[in-house]
């Protein structure tokens, strides 16, 4: 039980290790070891309301950002920077559905590398990726690119829904496959967008 109590660095009194500020003296505390969802006061789940996420994030930054401590002691300024850094990291991870999915998998002990191009052993995904790549290579007009973009974006939406369900069902294998698919769809959208930008620029 005593593990639930730590001394405040400022007034030395007892506080919860998750406290942002000391309830006795008001001093800002170091960021505790806590997962990103907990840090932002959200339930651990893939389906999160972006408005909720933003509200929590901006609310916390309003209290903890170093700008709020510009006239405070060096120690408080340093702690606020650590807090703001931790909040930014949590927000950046949870805001992006792909990073959020990979993070949830990691919390469950699965490793998905979303930065590196890993090998894909899912034949359905391989086929889908190949077809999209061919369609992109064949596209010559803005209208065709827009259509490809719409298809890919719709697929991303489906993917998000399926991921939310997979996490609810604790189907980690399914979630892993869907996360890989989401990564490929994101890449296709990026490539389509840069083709579009290139086409627009020629028209200038």
């Amino acid at each position: 039980m005593s593990g639930a109590i730590v001394p405040c660095w400022s007034c030395k009194g007892p506080i919860s290790p998750r406290a942002l500020f000391c309830s006795t003296c008001g001093a800002v505390q170091p960021p505790g070891v806590i997962d990103h969802f907990g840090r932002l006061g959200l339930r651990r789940s893939f389906a999160i309301d972006p408005a909720d996420l933003d509200r929590q994030y901006f609310g916390l930054q309003r209290r903890l950002h170093p700008d709020r401590f510009a006239t405070r002691s060096a120690k408080e300024r340093a702690l606020s920077q650590q807090q703001a850094t931790a909040i930014n990291e949590a927000y950046e991870t949870l805001k992006d559905p792909l990073k959020r999915a990979a993070y949830l998998l990691r919390l469950a002990g699965r490793v998905v590398d979303i930065d590196q191009a890993g090998t894909v052993d899912d034949p359905a995904l391989l086929m889908e990726a190949m077809e999209m790549r061919e369609a992109l290579a064949d596209a010559t007009t803005l209208a065709e690119l827009n259509e490809l973009m719409a298809t890919a974006e719709a697929a991303v939406g489906d993917c998000h829904e399926a991921l939310a369900q997979a996490f609810v069902d604790d189907d980690l294998d399914g979630a892993g496959k869907l996360t890989t698919r989401l990564k490929y769809l994101g890449k296709m959208i990026d490539e389509t967008r840069s083709r579009k930008v290139g086409m627009t620029r020629q028209g200038l």
Partner: peptide, 23 residues
């Protein structure tokens, strides 16, 4: 005193709240 109060049977949640926990 903080630890004694904790051992005196306060639930973790209540304790967290009284100690300024964020949630």
């Amino acid at each position: 005193r903080g630890i004694r109060q904790a051992l005196a049977g306060m639930t973790v949640e209540n304790l967290g709240k009284s100690l300024g926990d964020g949630t």
